[in-house]
């Protein structure tokens, strides 16, 4: 019945986090009464639960997530979209143009192989393949902007508490940012310089996601970059 680490310590797969009766949270497993970590991350001892906030993790698709994906294949009545999850996602014609699939629909004219799309996961089918939809505000084909990739487990850090981090970046740089839960981020600004600042900042957040007081430091960092450009 004891904790082996302090909260927010860096742990590595196999590290024994707790011995005794406790619930196992994210990224942990139980082995002979011991709770161990399965991913590298920061340990979090809650009330009656132990979990690890992963620093490296692949994307696990959930219904309702907004994702940025790439069309990799066109099949009869559906597009296959790569969203960095273990399996390709399906976007079918009725979910893209709000009309049934008919012979007059020319699929490559709507979305071609290589196009980037912003979509929402509306369902997981019985094999846990994500089903996408591009019907809705702000969804659909990406026309222009920058796309950067970060580790999907660091997305909450990029958004911040109630969006504090992302709102600060929006205010400081004046760029539009679409954050896909799968770790792909679309940045669209008025000038290329603005976009480059955001790309730089997001890479910095990706590297330093585990440190505290990040929002303020990032704000300073953006100001520094802006001065450099002027």
């Amino acid at each position: 019945m004891s904790a082996h680490f302090e909260s927010r310590d860096l742990v590595i797969p196999g590290d024994v986090l707790y011995e005794g009766r406790i619930r196992t949270g994210d990224n942990t497993y139980r082995m002979q009464g011991k709770v161990c970590a399965t991913r590298i991350g920061l340990v979090d001892y809650g009330r009656g639960i132990v979990s690890v906030i992963a620093l490296e993790a692949s994307y696990n698709s959930l219904v309702g997530d907004l994702v940025v994906g790439k069309v990799v294949d066109i099949e009869l009545g559906q597009w296959m979209v790569e969203i960095d999850s273990p399996s390709l996602a399906i976007l079918s014609v009725p979910d893209a143009i709000d009309a049934p699939f008919s012979p007059d629909v020319v699929m490559p004219d709507i979305l071609d192989v290589g196009d980037m799309v912003i979509a929402k996961i509306v369902d997981l089918d019985r094999r846990r393949t994500p089903i996408l939809s591009t019907l809705g505000r702000g969804l659909g084909k990406v026309e222009e902007g920058f796309i950067v990739r970060i580790t999907p487990s660091k997305i909450p850090r990029l958004i911040g508490k109630k969006g504090s981090m992302v709102n600060m970046i929006l205010k400081e740089t004046g760029c539009d940012i679409v954050i896909g839960q799968n770790g792909r981020i679309l940045i669209h600004g008025r000038t290329r310089e603005q976009e480059e600042i955001v790309v730089d900042v997001i890479n910095k957040i990706n590297k330093e996601a585990h440190t505290s007081g990040l929002t303020n430091r990032i704000q300073e960092y953006i100001k520094g970059l802006k001065e450099e450009q002027n």
């Binding site: 590595i12 797969p13 161990c36 399965t38 991913r39 590298i40 993790a57 692949s58």
Partner: peptide, 11 residues
């Protein structure tokens, strides 16, 4: 493998 975020029992 750990760097890729693949869940592991131990190193």
């Amino acid at each position: 493998l750990v760097d890729a975020g693949i869940p592991m029992r131990d190193l």
